[in-house]
Simulated scan of single mutants.
Amino acid sequence: MKRIITALVFTGILISCNSSDKTKAPIQESSITETATDSKSNDINKQLKTIDTDEDLIATALMAAPEESRSKCKVIGYNMAGEFVTMREGDNEFIVLADNPNQDGFNAACYHKDLEPFMARGRALRAEGKTGQEVFAIREAEMKSGQLKITPGSTLHIYYGAKTMYNPETSKVEGAQLRYVVYMPWATSKSTGLPEVPYAPNHPWIMNPGTHRAHIMISPLPADRE
């Protein structure tokens, strides 16, 4: 009888141990997974640095340009001292405008050199204290008179985002993305066949139709936008 009782007790202990092991196993596995995820996140964060030198401004601004053209682009913009300067000379068809370190977020642009008179005129008017509406009206009049010109099809590449940390190995800014502006002065929805609002992510549409600043917009949009 004692042998039977002893066997039953021993069996109960084994069942209890096995049940305990099964309960602990998922917890241990989950802990390992969480640790691996945290480690990966920390590695990514270690790769990022603040844009705090002129060299950083140049490197990140060039991400707005086509990859094959970056090495020869001219770079202009505000340096870390707050001066608007030529940050790097170039000898191809592109001019790159660096992010303004005194403004929130990140915004760099790349455009064909033929657009520089139009862009420079806008900068000069804003420096005079003109409002956005005033800048628009002045350049509209100057385009109509022939004082300013925009070659239809001239493209502006904009690299932008809410954050200002970047990976110095790749020059990519955290969370930044590209949108494109194709200038088509005086174009309309009727003349181009494009809608005046985007219908899907990266769907081209026409903005400022019928004006000197009419342009085709191609912007990344949230896939779930209604």
Rank of each mutant, 00 (worst) to 15 (best):
S191Q: 08
E29L: 10
G153Y: 09
E29T: 06
I150E: 00
K46M: 07
V85L: 03
H112G: 00
E68N: 09
L62E: 01
I27E: 02
K130W: 07
A120K: 11
V173P: 06
A64I: 09
V9T: 06
S69P: 00
E142Y: 02
T164A: 12
T211P: 03
R123E: 03
L221S: 01
N167P: 07
R225F: 11
G193A: 12
A61E: 05
P198G: 04
T23V: 11
F84G: 02
V181T: 09
T86L: 02
G175Q: 10
S39L: 14
I76H: 05
L62F: 03
V181G: 11
L97I: 13
G132M: 08
A162E: 08
K24F: 04
S16C: 13
P152N: 08
K49E: 14
E174P: 01
M119S: 02
Y166M: 12
H203D: 15
S69W: 05
T53L: 03
C73P: 01
V85T: 03
N79H: 10
M207Y: 06
N42E: 09
H203Q: 12
L148N: 00
E29Y: 01
T37Y: 14
Y166F: 15
I76Q: 07
D54C: 04
V9K: 07
E169H: 13
R3E: 12
R121M: 15
K172N: 15
N45P: 02
F94R: 01
E169Q: 14
L221R: 08
I150K: 01
S191R: 08
T37F: 14
D91W: 00
R70T: 13
I13D: 10
A59S: 14
S145L: 00
T170Q: 10
R88Q: 14
T53Q: 02
K22G: 04
K74S: 14
P220D: 08
L194Y: 02
T192Y: 03
R126N: 11
N92D: 06
T23W: 06
S16M: 13
M1P: 00
G82K: 07
A61I: 12
Y159A: 14
D104N: 03
K72E: 09
V135K: 04
K22I: 09
E174M: 15
A124R: 03
V75P: 02
E128S: 09
P195Q: 11
I138W: 00
D21H: 04
A59L: 13
M63Q: 15
R121T: 08
K40W: 06
A127H: 10
I44R: 11
M217N: 08
E128G: 06
F106K: 04
Q28S: 12
V9N: 01
I158G: 04
T131V: 05
S219K: 12
M87S: 05
A61R: 11
M143Y: 14
V197N: 07
A223M: 04
H215C: 13
H157S: 05
L194D: 00
L178Q: 02
P198R: 04
L8N: 03
P185R: 09
V85S: 00
T188M: 10
D43Q: 13
K2C: 03
R88M: 14
I27V: 06
Q47I: 11
D43R: 14
K172V: 15
R88I: 12
E226G: 09
T192E: 02
T6Y: 12
P101W: 06
A98C: 06
A223K: 08
N18G: 12
I5M: 08
T37L: 15
T50K: 15
Q177H: 10
V96G: 04
